[in-house]
Each structure stands twice: as structure tokens, then as C-alpha cells.
Design a protein around this nucleic acid. Structure first.
Length: 204
DNA sequence: AAGAGGATGAACT
DNA sequence: GTTCATCCTCTTG
């Protein structure tokens, strides 16, 4: 079943980042359905998190969607090349988001390989935030789309896979050294032992 | 109006 | 381990 919007409205983005592990990110563009199970996430918490684009209530055209209600996509361009996909969480005006960092490919992996210009299945296909958006066909233009609407081209589904706390590995977030002490917060989560987690440098 | 830099990934040495 | 692709967004003047 599709994950209801209520699942995104809680105030604790760190908790939601953990709860998204084991859920399924699905895209359906031009009738082509591709999906993967979320195996790695990171929490970004609005005003007090220097690593977050909405740090100190910073409000710009780009981050506006983060200030909306939870359950929508926040997609932005990184390094001019990579489209990074986030899930907005919390009630309106609370700018929190969860970055999806890696997936285990599930449906229509052939199409995903095609989009990545790869010829055989490897973790490289969807390990890393820029890689998985390319595999699923997600681009910045999709920012703002709802994830809880069955008619939306991007959705998150709950297929009743429960990841117990002891199967979750936490660590520091990747690529946020500029954030000072905030960079030390253990807000990166992945499924312990998964072969599909990103091999990011600087991670614990 | 201009310039710096980024929540990365791939291809190098 | 290092380099570099590539472009939008934000800051500064």
C-alpha cells in the first residue's frame, strides 16, 4: 500500500529517516514503472542544522517546498550534474527533509540499467543519491510532487517490510564537513549488511 | 552583473 | 588518492 501522508507529518525527522528504511520508492514515467527498496537515508533538520538548506530559517525559491507539508519531493541539483531526491517531512512551515542515499533495485531493473548506461546489475546502479535518481528518472523538475498520491509519478510504498532497530546502522552524514559540529550528528542510517548501501567516503 | 561553491560520481594516476 | 565534469542558486557589489 502507498505510505499515507500522515507518515510524513511527525516532527521528528530523524525518526522518519529511520522509518523510511525498507520502504519502496517507485517512479512511473511514460507508463514505465521502476522501483527500489530504500536502504540508506539521511536526516536534515531545518533551523538548527547547519547542513540543511533551510538552516537558520533560510528561505529561498529553491527551498520553498521544504516549508510545505510533509510528504512531498524536494529535488535539487548538486554540482551541476546530480539530481538529489529528498522527502519533505513535518507539518507546514517546518523545513525538515530526508535525503534518500541508496536503494536496492526491485522492479524493471532493465530500464534502470538503460538510464544509467550500464550493462549489468551492480550496486553502482543505485548506490548514492545522484545514481539512484538517474536510475529512477527523477529530475529537479519533479520537486514538489506528492509521494502519497496513487496518481503521482513518484510514490513511496509500504510493502510491510519491517526493519528492526538492531538492523539499522547509524553514522555521520556524507559531504557536510562545512557544517561544523552539526556534521558530527549521527543522522545517516542504513540497513546493516545490505550490499546496496553507498560506499561514501567520510562515512562511519 | 558577476563570482563562488556545492548533501556527487566517474575516471583517472 | 586526485581531478574534473557542469550549472543552478545564492551572495555580494
Amino acid at each position: 500500500m502507498i505510505l499515507p501522508q500522515e507518515a510524513y507529518l511527525g516532527e521528528d525527522v530523524v525518526r522518519i529517516a529511520r522509518e523510511l528504511l525498507g520502504k519502496f520508492l517507485v517512479t512511473e514515467f511514460d507508463g514505465i514503472l521502476t522501483s527500489g527498496m530504500i536502504v540508506e537515508t539521511e536526516a536534515y533538520r531545518g533551523p538548527d542544522d547547519k547542513a540543511c538548506h533551510a538552516y537558520n530559517h533560510r528561505r529561498t525559491a529553491r527551498t520553498e517546498v521544504m516549508y510545505g507539508e510533509g510528504g512531498h519531493a524536494y529535488v535539487y541539483l548538486c554540482y551541476g550534474i546530480h539530481h538529489l531526491f529528498n522527502v519533505v517531512t513535518g507539518p507546514k512551515d517546518q523545513a525538515h527533509a530526508v535525503l534518500i542515499r541508496a536503494l536496492e533495485p526491485v522492479e524493471h531493473t532493465g530500464q534502470m540499467l538503460l538510464r544509467r548506461r550500464m550493462d549489468k546489475l551492480a550496486s553502482r546502479l543505485t548506490a548514492g543519491p545522484g545514481a539512484l535518481t538517474e536510475a529512477l528518472g527523477i529530475r529537479t523538475g519533479h520537486s514538489g510532487l506528492p509521494l502519497f498520491d496513487p496518481d503521482s509519478p513518484i510514490r513511496i510504498e509500504d510493502r510491510k517490510i519491517h526493519i528492526p532497530l538492531e538492523s539499522i546502522q547509524s553514522g555521520t552524514r556524507v559531504g557536510v564537513q562545512y557544517a561544523g559540529t552539526c556534521a558530527l550528528r549521527p543522522w545517516r542510517f542504513c540497513i546493516k549488511g545490505s550490499a546496496w548501501v553507498s560506499k561514501a567516503k567520510g562515512a562511519e
